[in-house]
Design a protein around this nucleic acid. Structure first.
Lengths: 144, 144
DNA sequence: TTTATATTATGATAATTATCATGTTTTATA
DNA sequence: TATAAAACATGATAATTATCATAATATAAA
């Protein structure tokens, strides 16, 4: 349902949301180390996110990545859409090319409400919201 | 969460449950064509299922695959466990190596109840149950 | 006992995804 | 203006997954 790339992107962007702003940028290596994922891979992911205007990237000394206030108001489905595309996210759980409420797969009635709920959560809550929860110790983005 | 192999395995074993018994076996090619998946790949999947005693395979002329009554009482999580293993099925949605009720990821509270429910459905309902629903037109295993 | 049919077993190829490495460009600052 | 620190861009490698092909084995029936 999600590629590793998307998973990493979500964790990384939450990390940025928590620790960065225009005055306090972060290097991709620093973040990669923090959330324990391969650094060059994250660099590549950040390029995609940057092109899609989901994160800020500043070159040169004291450069790095950060999120503007506006960008912290984006949601996580934007991130998934940017990396994986939404087709992958929406595909049928047991791989039917067409699976719908009208012609459902065997477990559609379980998966469908979940996906609805998840999609709602991933669109209605902002990155800032998720970051806040993590700050408050309600959830985590790295666990060794 | 599920590999293509598991997805195919589920659809194929349901196809078997619906169309086969000890007197009416099915060839793997026939099934592959019916549910529109690559035939040699299904043959490989059937080997695994056969070794795990989840399906019957009879060699020679008029041979083929089928499910005994007992095998129709198995559940779909057995199939997933056989092909992917349960680790893959249970892994965190955003890839945290350790994600639990105590130390949850950002969306654990959504994913966790879903997984509980899905696991329950996939263990409590038998293959025969799912097959019955498909026979009754309540769900589908192939849709072009 | 031979033959045809079907699975079994194994390995080769292809495609995708993930990871790593390198050189280029940008830009703040000394 | 030179330098160094950082992202950018690109491509190479590795690992995993999916797909395809072929030879071996088993067995019912002629």
């Amino acid at each position: 349902m999600l590629s590793n790339q998307s998973k990493y992107a979500i964790r990384a962007i939450l990390c940025l949301a928590i620790n960065s702003d225009s005055k306090k940028k972060m290097g991709s290596k620093e973040i990669a180390e923090k959330i324990d994922i391969p650094a060059p891979f994250l660099a590549k992911i950040f390029q995609s996110l940057s092109k899609a205007k989901l994160i800020q990237s500043i070159k040169g000394p004291n450069g790095g990545f950060y999120l503007t206030k506006a960008e912290k108001q984006n949601n996580l489905l934007d991130v998934i859409a940017c990396i994986d595309g939404l087709d992958k996210f929406n595909e049928c759980f047991i791989g039917l090319p067409k699976c719908s409420d009208e012609y459902p797969c065997a477990i559609h009635h379980i998966v469908s409400p979940f996906k609805t709920k998840l999609t709602e959560e991933l669109t209605s809550k902002t990155i800032a919201d998720f970051a806040e929860e993590t700050k408050n110790g309600k959830s985590y983005i790295f666990l060794k």
